[in-house]
Measured scan of single mutants.
Amino acid sequence: MASQGTKRSYEQMETDGERQNATEIRASVGKMIDGIGRFYIQMCTELKLSDYEGRLIQNSLTIERMVLSAFDERRNKYLEEHPSAGKDPKKTGGPIYKRVDRKWMRELVLYDKEEIRRIWRQANNGDDATAGLTHMMIWHSNLNDTTYQRTRALVRTGMDPRMCSLMQGSTLPRRSGAAGAAVKGVGTMVMELIRMIKRGINDRNFWRGENGRKTRSAYERMCNILKGKFQTAAQRAMMDQVRESRNPGNAEIEDLIFLARSALILRGSVAHKSCLPACVYGPAVASGYDFEKEGYSLVGIDPFKLLQNSQVYSLIRPNENPAHKSQLVWMACNSAAFEDLRVLSFIRGTKVSPRGKLSTRGVQIASNENMDAMESSTLELRSRYWAIRTRSGGNTNQQRASAGQISVQPAFSVQRNLPFDKPTIMAAFTGNTEGRTSDMRAEIIRMMEGAKPEEMSFQGRGVFELSDERAANPIVPSFDMSNEGSYFFGDNAEEYDN
């Protein structure tokens, strides 16, 4: 993207840094990872977990959730003011799984939030270390993106479920800051804005008074975040219109849905970061690795190297396929839920299948599930090659597409044709070009129609051997075009429920 120079890199967003050079960025990201790792080690000690239990991804998720809940100030305040039966607002906890007599047992633990905050700050040299908290939120978000298709949420806001490739980060909490905003897809931002506008339509006082002023500035800020994701002048001009509207209503909703559809071809720039579970960072720190000293990046080879040398386990339900569970977590670790499966298959070195073909449910185990038949197995999170994460949407291309997802959002900077089903997408653009945004709409449609099938995206960008740390010898991959490109292809993934 041309304006790259004016933006802070995501590592800076990730670490609240002012302008830093590459070495400083690597050190501050490393410091953040160190903090998460030290916190995780301490929690495993508190909970008396064995090494194996500490490497269980379900335990990692519970521990991450506990610290996120302990620092969720708004919710904590709300819980104190609106006490609900049987919930102690000062405590947080969740299921911890232990191996007892050759069987997995679930144990519900409860801790004072104050105590968890103390352990977290102690692991982070006394700081609140917001960057580390956001990092864990993005890992949870990436896992949700890989596990669930947001059909219901899309339909509720009037969008087409086939636009799911635009929904990265749709389950990120509001408090995820600049680093969170960077990884949100165009569809996620559109959905947040539509929800806001709908509230304004239904509630006369939404934009009024002292609160209304705050609401208005939040609305304009979200519009600017979305505008910054678009790469064409016409899309940005249309966002200006939406932002400046005196009284946002149905016309703005129409414009936003139009823009979301246009992003299936004229893709937005959305950041991709490899955020790993805390149970990967903990053992690495415990083994003596100093992330701050060595430096770390979320968008280069580092996460690949770390996963190459990590042992992570997962509980497996009786009829689940461990290899499929591994694929789910591998995609989440690489922030690749909406990437082209052919690119992923090449990088991973084994075939990556669409969601609907995987015999696996989510990673988390519900409290009512029976533990008797639970097994555990090693997650295979290694890769054959590594590639640089991208934040450009890439230019655009036609490809055989599917009944489910009709476009992709690249996660890796790797040369390819970008699949999208042009006739299906263009069919949504018939007729409606009147109104105050008509010239911009016409211009956007013209650009979409001009998108050429034979153009290559990320020209000359390749993948790298894991021994090639400096990215000196790019390998331009070859793809098996007979395979499906979309992950949520004609899909039956479970729906995400809060």
Score class of each variant (00 low, 15 high):
M1V: 05
M1R: 00
R19Y: 13
Q20R: 12
R26D: 06
S28M: 13
G35F: 07
E46A: 00
G54W: 12
G54Q: 00
Q58T: 00
L61D: 12
R74M: 00
N76C: 05
E80M: 04
D88A: 02
P89T: 03
K91R: 00
G94W: 10
D101Q: 00
L108S: 04
V109H: 05
Y111G: 12
I119N: 08
A129E: 06
L133S: 13
M137G: 10
W139N: 08
L143K: 06
Y148I: 06
R150N: 14
M167S: 04
M167P: 04
L172A: 03
R175N: 09
G187E: 14
M191K: 03
L193A: 05
R199M: 10
G200S: 04
D203K: 06
F206W: 11
W207R: 13
R213E: 07
Y219V: 14
M238L: 09
N250Q: 08
A251N: 10
F258I: 04
A271T: 02
C279H: 12
Y281Q: 09
A286P: 03
A286E: 09
Y289C: 08
Y289V: 02
S297H: 10
D302L: 04
N309P: 12
N309W: 01
Y313Q: 07
L315Q: 08
I316D: 08
N319S: 08
Q327V: 04
C333K: 11
N334D: 12
A336R: 05
F338R: 02
D340E: 15
K351E: 07
G356W: 08
G356S: 10
S367W: 06
D372H: 12
D372Y: 06
S376E: 08
T378S: 00
L379Q: 14
E380C: 01
R382S: 06
Q398K: 15
P410T: 01
A411N: 09
F412E: 15
V414S: 15
N417Q: 02
P419C: 06
D421V: 15
P423H: 05
A427S: 14
G435Q: 11
M440A: 15
M448Q: 12
G462V: 07
G462C: 05
L466K: 12
L466G: 00
R470D: 11
A471C: 06
P477E: 08
S486H: 10
G490T: 13
Y496S: 02
N498P: 02
